[in-house]
């Protein structure tokens, strides 16, 4: 049951205005994507089709701030590859995640990963332990990242605070 007050009429326009998700309204809900989604198999509440429908309907609150739902997407592009309408559901989901990040609705596991990227420039930190193994293999040590440069990029694009914050 969807009540009128659950609908945010500007939401779908916000999503359509992003070039990568401009074809949002072209989804006819054929459902061809669903059997190809690896997440749907393990959590039938989730499907790219449902996410698209909720977005088309303007159900902002069910989609964007919902940390346990939106971020399940593994970014595998299986739905995008199979879509007959070529609406690119994966790109629409990326747009939705970008919106969620702006209002700081990021699941805790992802948040700590982004913190790591902001701090070190890397998703996986490479330190002495790793370099010792590399030396044993005869490989060069991993070359250090100039974090002042990566930090500058995150600050100039306005995402440093979103990525580096503790809470």
């Amino acid at each position: 049951m969807i009540d009128d007050d659950m609908i945010d009429s500007g939401f779908r326009m916000d999503v359509r205005n992003i070039a990568e998700s401009a074809k949002l309204m072209a989804c006819q809900q054929c459902g061809k994507c669903t059997p190809f989604c690896p997440i749907t198999r393990l959590n039938s509440d989730f499907s790219p089709r449902k996410l698209i429908r909720m977005t088309q309907l303007g159900l902002h609150k069910r989609v964007v701030p919902n940390k346990k739902y939106l971020w399940l997407c593994a970014n595998c592009y299986a739905c995008s590859e199979i879509c007959s309408q070529q609406i690119d559901p994966t790109e629409i989901i990326v747009s939705l995640k970008n919106m969620a990040a702006r209002i700081k609705k990021i699941p805790v596991g992802k948040k700590s990963m982004y913190g790591q990227i902001a701090k070190t420039g890397l998703v996986f930190e490479v330190g002495e332990e790793q370099n010792a193994i590399r030396e044993e293999m005869g490989l060069d040590p991993f070359s250090e990242v100039d974090v002042s440069q990566t930090e500058h990029i995150l600050k100039a694009t306005g995402v440093y605070d979103i990525m580096a914050r503790r809470k």
Binding site: A101, I106, E144, V145, Q149, T150, G158, V159, M163
Partner: peptide, 27 residues
């Protein structure tokens, strides 16, 4: 040949912000 000073590619940053991802990868 090694690329000195390269960071994470930027893949995960795309989920947070497409512009930041683009500049990061371009670096």
């Amino acid at each position: 040949e090694n690329i000195p000073g390269a960071a994470c590619c930027g893949h995960e940053i795309e989920q947070v912000d497409r512009d930041a991802y683009m500049v990061w990868a371009a670096r």
